[in-house]
Simulated scan of single mutants.
Amino acid sequence: MVTSSNGERKPLAGRPLRQPHDSRMPDDPAYQQEIIQAHDDALAGGGAGYLDPRTGLFVLSARFLAARGTCCGRGCRHCPYVK
């Protein structure tokens, strides 16, 4: 569990932070692997996120999102709260 800034505790989904929810990933397996590698690199480097390998958009890491303490409801690719 993680504590949010207002003290409310929200449970994380029961999967490793490095594993995004299937519903948040593209259908293309090669693209999925590129995303997972970029996310793994961000987690290993302690960064807040990474640049999507195909679009160049900044994507927040699961660790960064978990530290917020709650889901924002915006459909983040690596949301650690989506079950």
Rank of each mutant, 00 (worst) to 15 (best):
V2R: 02
T3N: 01
T3I: 04
S4K: 04
S5L: 05
S5I: 09
N6V: 00
E8F: 00
E8Q: 03
R9K: 12
R9M: 00
K10M: 03
P11E: 07
P11G: 05
A13C: 09
A13D: 01
G14P: 13
G14E: 12
G14S: 14
P16L: 15
R18E: 13
R18P: 05
R18Y: 15
H21Q: 04
D22W: 14
D22N: 13
D22L: 12
S23P: 08
R24A: 13
R24Q: 09
R24V: 07
P26Q: 12
P26L: 14
D27V: 15
P29Q: 10
A30N: 12
A30V: 15
Y31D: 09
Q32H: 09
Q32F: 03
Q32S: 09
Q33M: 13
I35E: 00
Q37F: 12
Q37E: 14
Q37V: 10
Q37W: 10
Q37M: 13
A38Q: 05
H39S: 01
H39V: 00
D40N: 15
D40G: 13
D40P: 07
D41Q: 15
D41T: 14
A42H: 03
A42N: 06
A42V: 06
L43C: 03
A44H: 10
G45N: 06
G45S: 11
G45H: 06
G46E: 04
G47F: 12
A48W: 04
A48I: 08
A48L: 11
G49S: 07
G49A: 06
G49V: 03
Y50L: 11
Y50F: 15
Y50N: 03
D52V: 10
D52Q: 10
P53K: 10
R54I: 10
T55H: 09
T55I: 14
G56N: 06
G56W: 02
G56A: 02
L57W: 12
L57G: 08
V59W: 00
V59I: 15
S61V: 07
A62F: 02
F64A: 11
F64C: 09
F64G: 01
L65E: 04
L65W: 04
A66G: 01
A67V: 08
A67G: 13
G69E: 01
G69M: 00
T70K: 05
C71G: 03
C71V: 04
C71N: 08
C71T: 07
C71K: 03
G73M: 10
G73T: 09
G73E: 10
R74F: 05
R74T: 03
R74I: 09
R74W: 05
R74M: 09
G75A: 13
C76F: 05
C76Y: 05
R77S: 11
R77Y: 08
R77A: 13
R77E: 07
R77D: 06
H78V: 11
H78S: 11
H78E: 12
H78W: 13
H78D: 10
C79A: 10
C79Q: 07
C79W: 01
C79P: 02
P80K: 05
P80V: 06
P80A: 10
P80I: 06
V82I: 13
V82M: 07
V82C: 12
K83P: 09
K83S: 11
